[in-house]
Design a protein around this nucleic acid. Structure first.
Lengths: 198, 198
DNA sequence: TGTACATCAGTGAACGCGCGTTCACTGATGTAC
DNA sequence: TGTACATCAGTGAACGCGCGTTCACTGATGTAC
């Protein structure tokens, strides 16, 4: 309300930030156009200068959330020790991808759900989408001789399912009540299972 | 509208059936109290004679859906050949539990989502909830000597995550576009992974 | 450097919608005598 | 077996809410001369 200029200056970015905060607090269903404008201190219809409609705002929020997920995975990848042999590096990379996914889902459940609320593709700093980060880790496992090439095809879906399922059960489902320790333990054992079972 | 009696006779059941049909068509968000009464041919407020509020109707729908899920799992369990040795029976039981879960999610995505939209417990004809059916299958694996007792604890979460994740990705998420064949193949390989990785 | 003017970002008011829920009611049903 | 009556399942009308979206507008900004 106490804007120095008549024009906002960067309303597009401000609305996107407000929408993202709404998603963070309450998931995709909480991304309400009017509430976003309210938080920015602007009239409801002002949003239509910057987004075609409510869906366009939600899509933008979803893309930002997906990019954050990719970045969370990249962060885990970046922390892998350089002093490992190729096979261990490859294994660590798959684990990192899964850990980043699980951590983001638990740390930002609202954004996580927003990311998957639409058909959204977005990449992190490496330019790769979450799916591509997983694919690349699986490729490495084959190159390092850890995963037989015959098992490579379609492996994305298997690893992804395990990690996505635990995320959903923990943030939104019947496993909501798990303690931090329990979640950590379950995550570790789940990644063990994927590694062993692939 | 062309009711023979002034009183409906079984409005509770009729509203629950209508609400369930709404969930089937559009998931938990589609369970709208007014629409349920509309479909039954009754005024909106009539619902309040049978359900405390909208949430109570949704809860009842959710419980019915959860029971259907349990029954889908029981159906798969019942189809296991009796001519197997105990170890193979145990393995088949775990697979059946997973297959029933996946099949129900794919055949009735709206009800599946409704079942998990609230904290809902419900059992099938055996009196066991879906979780208990899984637990029991895992117990059998230990008894049959297929699963080392040291790996038994917490195994529910691992198996459940894998199967739940594939369900969510396929019915609601980025894997929505999979063909029937692809889904069947992915389901089979996922269950292989769980069996091998547990 | 100063002035006229076109642009277009944001305003204020209003719309129609469907929702959950509440109110006072009515009349078919089943029971008590 | 017939009648008076209490019950309570369903009615009709209305409420307030918040939403997405549209309309005609205004006035600060940046540009052209």
């Amino acid at each position: 309300m106490s804007r120095s200029t008549y024009r906002h200056g960067d309303l597009h970015r401000a609305l996107l930030a407000a929408g993202t905060e709404l998603a963070r607090e309450g998931g995709p269903g909480a991304v309400v156009l009017r509430e976003a404008t309210r938080r920015v201190g602007v009239s409801p219809n002002a949003a239509y200068r910057h987004f075609a409609d409510h869906r366009a705002l939600l899509q933008a929020v979803s893309e930002g959330a997906m990019a954050q997920l990719a970045r969370a995975m990249e962060t885990e990848l970046a922390s892998i020790s350089a002093r490992l042999n190729p096979a261990d590096v490859a294994r660590a990379r798959l684990r990192a991808v899964g850990t980043g996914y699980l951590r983001f889902a638990q740390a930002e459940p609202g954004l996580f759900r927003a990311a998957f609320s639409m058909d959204t593709l977005a990449s992190g700093d490496s330019g790769l989408t979450p799916y591509e980060l997983l694919s690349s880790a699986l490729d490495d496992l084959v190159v390092a001789g850890v995963l037989p090439p015959s098992r490579r095809e379609g492996a994305e879906v298997l690893a992804w399912s395990a990690v996505h399922g635990l995320s959903m059960l923990v943030i939104d489902g019947p496993l909501r009540g798990m303690s931090d320790d329990e979640r950590r333990a379950a995550a570790g054992r789940l990644l063990d299972m994927v590694q062993k079972g692939l």
